[in-house]
Amino acid sequence: MIRIGTRNSPLAIWQAEFVAKQLQEYCNQDTTIVPYITEGDKKLETSLAWKGGKGLFIKDIQKALKNNEADIAVHSMKDVPVEQNTDFLLPAILERDSPYDVLISKKYNSLDDLPERGVIGTSSFRRSGQLLYRYPNFTIKLLRGNINTRINKCMQGEYDAIILAKAGIDRMQMGNYVKQVLSEKICLPAIGQGAIGIECLQKNDRIVEILQQLNHQPTRICVEAERTFNGYLGGNCHSPVACFATLEENDNQIMMRAVVTDPQDKQLIECYRKKKEPIIITATSQSIVQQLVQTKLAEKNDYIVCFSERIAHYAHQHEFNNLHIISKATHSSLAAKLVELNQKLSNY
């Protein structure tokens, strides 16, 4: 009998039951579900960014693993901190469901339909940063609670609309509330969004071997690439960071798009990496181009997005020919990190 530790929320219980079915069907293992009210569940009225981050959802369940109260833990991968305790392993990441976000509203059918100063409910800096970049007059209002609670608050008029993960809505069979699926061009997904991870103690060889049978390797490759990105930037619940990776061409090539936003200044920068193809680098200052020249991080055929004609002229002088000029300004320090990141992503 395998004991499955999980949060005691409707969505978390659904995910645990799904894993139980997978273990029965593919591994011939009987299971029992052990629910926990985690520290994160106890702090539903404040932003987790100031209470310890989404890691609060998993610490109590990890403690149960160490205390031999549970054999495995089921998590939403977007809640799993990048820096893992070496006592634990993630032998299985299940096939990813939809990674996208959705708009839920009682009155409005899309973001474009909302009033200019519409009130949007979300607790995510990633979502609010991307929305404010495109809709700078929106008002972002904190939204916490389980899916049912959040939707009820919206239907009762506390918000003009709220943003939730499509995977959770689908799993809870609440798709009738969805008014718009937000494409990655509007709101790039969170690291690991839509994927379920199964954790256990590293020393538990029998459980590790069983769980590895459930692992979906294409999803794992993409989620680990996204988590590498987040770890490189030092991303956590405080960080308005998004990253989404996909496998292309018979799973032989990975495409990654990443976004870092500044919700306060309503600015956004992006980077792309496609293995064996030129990278796209955001250059917000002449110093960024200088870094490219001095460190040889960029090649002559890479695409350089320049934030002024002066920067573009400087880049052209150094034989960077694939230039694109845009007028939006942003933080050069974040852009510099993305320049460095492109080198790291080239390993994928």
Rank of each mutant, 00 (worst) to 15 (best):
L323P: 03
R220H: 08
E270H: 11
L143V: 10
Q317G: 15
D112R: 03
N236Q: 03
K59D: 13
S285T: 13
S346C: 04
V74G: 07
T246V: 10
K42W: 02
G118R: 03
P189H: 01
K300Y: 02
K106A: 14
C154G: 02
V305A: 10
L297E: 01
Y26V: 03
E17H: 08
H75E: 07
Y133W: 14
N347E: 15
C222V: 04
E17C: 05
P240C: 06
N301I: 00
R144W: 00
S9C: 09
R144P: 04
S76I: 04
G197K: 08
G40A: 04
Q29Y: 09
I198Q: 04
N137Q: 10
Q24M: 12
I13H: 11
D113K: 13
Y314H: 14
N148V: 12
N109P: 00
S287L: 13
E299K: 09
G234Q: 11
C187W: 04
I280S: 01
N204Q: 01
A49S: 14
P35E: 05
Q343D: 01
S9A: 14
D251L: 09
D87L: 13
I13W: 10
C243M: 09
K43C: 10
E226A: 04
K274H: 06
I72D: 11
S327W: 00
T219N: 05
E95N: 08
K185R: 14
Q24A: 15
C200T: 15
F244P: 02
C237V: 08
A335R: 00
I311P: 12
D71L: 08
R3A: 07
R310I: 15
G129V: 07
G192T: 10
N152W: 02
Y36V: 13
N176R: 13
I281A: 10
S346G: 02
L292Y: 02
Q173V: 11
M77C: 11
A16I: 08
L111Q: 05
L345K: 00
T38V: 12
L164N: 04
A12I: 07
A165Y: 01
K166F: 13
S76W: 06
C200Y: 05
K337A: 03
H75W: 11
K153Q: 15
K185Y: 13
V102A: 11
G192N: 12
E25V: 13
S346R: 11
I169C: 04
K274L: 01
K300C: 03
I288S: 08
I169S: 08
H216Y: 11
W14T: 14
H316A: 14
Q317M: 14
G197E: 05
I325F: 09
I288E: 05
G129K: 10
T246G: 02
S287D: 15
A312R: 11
A161Q: 05
C271T: 15
G235D: 07
E209S: 11
I169F: 04
W50S: 15
I221Y: 01
Y272E: 10
T32L: 13
N176M: 12
F125R: 09
L268Y: 03
G145E: 03
Q267F: 02
P91H: 01
H331Y: 12
D101Y: 14
K203S: 15
I162T: 01
R144I: 10
A283F: 00
Y36G: 02
L292H: 05
Q24W: 08
K106C: 01
R273D: 07
S333Y: 12
Q202T: 08
I288A: 09
I191K: 13
K59E: 15
Q267Y: 04
V82H: 09
S332H: 12
